[in-house]
Design a protein around this nucleic acid. Structure first.
Lengths: 222, 222
DNA sequence: TCCTATATTTTGAGTTGTCAAAATGAAACT
DNA sequence: AGTTTCATTTTGACAACTCAAAATATAGGA
């Protein structure tokens, strides 16, 4: 029984929620319902069905967690999503700000044959345009823990690795200021009162962004 | 109200049935049901709904015909299908025998933005890998009437234009014998008793095929 | 015309995924 | 402990799509 697009979306949402909530945590129903954009009761119904088929572990009133089988399936959906995004940017010349919506649809229909063809054309990339890691065909992911521009040391050169947000207008903003994976950056100042973070980019531009935005830009010390 | 994949498939099937049945003919329910692979009663139900929303004209017990609105919608589905096929062959290097299934899925989810990007990358092609014409973004198609290898004059050089069949194994057979659009061919002999047609191709190979196969190879006198 | 074969439609039912709103459980604050 | 608050689950209903099988219409032949 291959999973419907709907099921794939639930699994993907759980996978991503677990990634930010931490491994062992249960994902609360409300959060899941919000993520897949359905009413709370709908999520409950769906999750009970998924628990029935062994893709998740469901603890009534507490939350859900992916089973090993569910985790693998979710990783494969994410693999398709991210390879498609990389393909749309690298091969089709689209902007990284506009590929998410298309990938969201395509991830459910691209065949194995097609996805492996894309993978080969792209030279088996390890990350997508946003720096998100691409799971292997077996569902394995290399997961690192990165600091963000909110938590890294001041006045220390770092390199941008990943953007933890898919919002198109945010990505367009980043693109305009050349804030994409690979860019070198230094945090000059953080002002908690102003809720702001001042940056200097490798190409010597200065930008001030909010702390919430800063927390979404993941980096590595060079 | 944008049409579901299911509706798009019904419209597409009607469009193609009308193309082979002739313009004014009504498509019988049984034929439609077979084409979309559902039980006869299912097709009746669906068609009544489509008639309700003005996409088809339904004559109980006689058959269905696309309305102008339905025709346009169907042509756009076909445009997406054929551009995707051309893309899979030209850009992704897939065989023309294996692109149909993938295109069948992708045609329902590729966005306008993406399909126009493909169209541009391909240089606005007028036909797909099988020689089928690609409708414009307005839903206009250039439709020619071609002779086939079954009906053309004997011992007269002709050029292959189009294959009127998407069956993967048939296409693989054609590929093996270099029988694709553009190839020049001569019919040497037709043997009604043996139900066969003998060909000589431009690269000087001889092949004998059945009349049914021959009728699917559309040609033009050079 | 009558009868039969075939195509089509109707009926009753099932599946998947969804919602709104009522009911209930858990937690939190006096 | 009692009560309010919030999240979660239950309930009843609906929309889209499907089928099998019964009922009916049409067309063709005797």
């Amino acid at each position: 029984m291959l999973p419907s697009s709907t099921v794939e979306n639930y699994l993907k949402a759980l996978y991503q929620a677990e990634a930010t909530l931490g491994e062992k945590a249960l994902v609360p129903m409300g959060q899941l319902a919000t993520a897949v954009r359905v009413a709370p009761g709908t999520a409950t119904t769906m999750i009970k069905a998924l628990a029935e088929s062994g893709l998740v572990k469901y603890e009534p009133y507490l939350g859900v967690r992916l089973s090993p089988a569910g985790t693998k399936l979710a990783a494969l959906v994410l693999r398709r999503h991210r390879l498609v995004e990389q393909f749309l940017v690298e091969v089709m010349g689209m902007s990284w700000a506009e590929v998410h919506e298309d990938a969201e649809q395509l991830e459910h229909v691209v065949s194995d044959r097609l996805i492996e063809r894309m993978d080969a054309m792209l030279g088996h990339p390890s990350v997508d345009p946003h720096g998100d890691p691409i799971p292997t065909a077996d569902g394995d992911v290399e997961s690192h823990q990165y600091d963000s521009l909110l938590t890294c040391r001041l006045r220390t050169p770092v390199k941008m690795i990943r953007v933890a947000d898919q919002d198109a207008s945010f990505l367009r903003f980043l693109e305009e200021h050349n804030l994409k994976p690979g860019q070198s950056i230094e945090v000059e100042l953080r002002d908690p009162a102003a809720d702001s973070v001042q940056l200097r980019t490798g190409d010597d531009h200065r930008i001030t962004i909010g702390t919430k935005a800063a927390s979404k830009l993941l980096i590595e010390v060079v």
